[in-house]
Design a protein around this nucleic acid. Structure first.
Lengths: 334, 334
DNA sequence: TTGTAAGCGTTATCAC
DNA sequence: GTGATAACGCTTACAA
């Protein structure tokens, strides 16, 4: 005795499968009595429709694929939660994939999801090319977030990377810093690229030179931040301030300073682009920009749901403004 | 021109669908030439089998359901990543659900997953009853982790909650504390229950009384930790040390102390059951137990995969030992 | 208002 | 070796 099928329900209600289907789906046709009989039979048998069979027939799986570089990152986890909530409310399930910060794995992940198939995609890309994207995703609705590919897909959500970086540079300059270095993050991802661009622009705006070796492209990891900070601190002249393009990079900088017996912010000022949710609890508290994972997830999911429902939206590429959280690591008094 | 189907491949190769199916699935029967022809046709058409149709027919979806109280929690996110990796390698996809720390939502989530259907479940339960579980999950393989329901399911993985809590109490007692309070966490989840039990046992073992009101059952949130800490600090006599049963509770305690101008560990000692991955970077660094999300995810996934493959395992309920990380918040010198 | 039947894209059981 | 053909459980013209 496995799960009851629609045929079982129909038999018990004394009607045909099509009538049973119509009754359960609330289509017009069946009389009130018929509906009642079918509903009774269904609940008596504890009938639950097979999503699989329905999807095969209707060509809609009500499943969304979610692909990120690293789901264990608190930022992506927070985006996931909020996107999931929105999608769940809209009747969608979520299938998860990790690209592991590798373009090849990302393509494979997309392929797996499309085979399933998924009705739409939420993607934080880790450096896909436009042609690769078009070839593997085709016309399936896809909303980018955080890691964005421009010119393709049905929409995108992110923060204002360039102007945000400007805020950080401006603030450090206000503190009197002139030799500012950047832990730049991975330069295959839009976030890394745009933040670096914003850094260069802001430094230029202030008429400040960017010393040779003061820009450190690197992985988005704590270990990488630690290593690159050590390199920076070994330079002559040594930077007096460091901007980390991501929170893990900032942690790495923390760790390096601790190892080397340096005091933040007395010996070195630090500002981070991303604000981890415990930025406040660090010592010194971390100066950072508001990162908005909840908003990003919610908006990305909404864009996708609208696209799936055929709703046209005027604004398809959304960039959220960020604000500076002045805390202690930059030299502001707590 | 949508995706090519098996029929398209068969037609192009000049064979029947059944032969094409056999050839592609490597079943014996088809001759070498036939195999070759089918493979050529398949790649020419960029054929990708429909997972949906295959699942409907074989009654295996190769999809696993993953249910947690809150996926934005770094602990669960880390478990997810490691479990996902293991499952991916074994050819399974992962469908995600959030129970939002609510038993009703958890049941609904399980129902949704089973409708899909999923071949197995990875579940951190938030206080399900045995009968509820049996009714909704039936015989589908389910491995519990973190939040565990004993006596049902195909296995479980967690840490040694009781002895771990003993380690924390022992250590604070070594520091000379006698009035130790507990931010106990939610008492519907096994983790909360077992950690409280371990706390009582350890206090008893040391012959220490547990003062009235010194045990604070509460939500697992930072806000809750902050509030309960304030309550504890308003008590007479006031506890000299607090143990947080979870990391967010410890952060709340941090926040409360900061608000009240109290110095950790001089005015109050703090030890946490869970170690957040940045515990080292806090000031003071957080004394905690090693939490092992990566191991937990990996083991849980392995147990499930074994069960799905019909492999019998002797050890089905695994409890990982934990170690004490002596840092500064308990009063140890850094 | 209801029923019949075709099909969604596979796999599996038969014959040949 | 290979090919019809019947499922898997559902939706949806089209008939009645």
């Amino acid at each position: 005795m496995s799960r009851a099928t629609l045929a079982d329900v129909a038999r018990r209600a004394g009607v045909s499968v099509s009538t049973a289907s119509r009754a359960l789906n609330g289509l017009d046709g069946p009389s009130v009595e018929t509906r009642r009989a079918v509903a009774d039979a269904a609940s008596a048998l504890q009938y639950r429709p097979s999503v699989l069979a329905r999807s095969l027939r209707t060509r809609r799986s009500h499943t969304i694929g979610f692909v990120v570089p690293d789901i264990s990152s608190p930022f992506y986890a927070a985006v996931l939660r909020s996107a999931h909530e929105r999608l769940h409310d809209a009747g969608y399930r979520l299938m998860l994939m990790n690209s592991n910060r590798d373009a090849g794995e990302e393509i494979e992940a997309l392929g797996t999801l499309l085979d399933h198939p998924v009705d739409g995609l939420l993607l934080a890309t880790t450096g896909l090319r436009t042609t690769q994207f078009e070839r593997t995703v085709g016309t399936v609705p896809c909303v980018f977030f955080d890691g964005i590919l421009t010119g393709v897909g049905t929409g995108s959500v992110g923060v204002m990377n360039e102007s945000g970086m400007g805020l950080l540079v401006d603030h450090l300059v206000e503190h009197g810093h002139r030799r500012i270095a950047l832990l730049a993050g991975q330069q295959t991802e839009t976030t890394g690229i745009e933040r670096l661009r914003g850094f260069r622009a802001a430094m230029k705006r202030h008429g400040l030179p960017v010393a040779r070796g003061h820009i450190r492209p690197c992985d988005w990891t704590q270990e990488s931040g630690r290593l690159e900070t050590r390199v920076l601190l070994g330079l002559h002249p040594r930077p007096t301030a460091i901007i980390a393009a991501g929170d893990d990079l900032a942690f790495g900088c923390f760790a390096a300073c601790r190892e080397m017996g340096l005091d933040l912010p007395a010996d070195l000022a630090l500002a981070s682009f991303d604000d981890p949710y415990f930025g406040q609890l660090l010592e010194p508290a971390l100066t950072a920009l508001t990162s908005k994972p909840v908003e990003i997830g919610q908006i990305a999911a909404s864009l996708l749901v609208d696209a799936l429902r055929g709703v046209e939206r005027s604004e398809r590429d959304i960039r959220l403004p960020v604000e500076l959280l002045r805390r202690a690591s930059c030299g502001c008094v707590a």
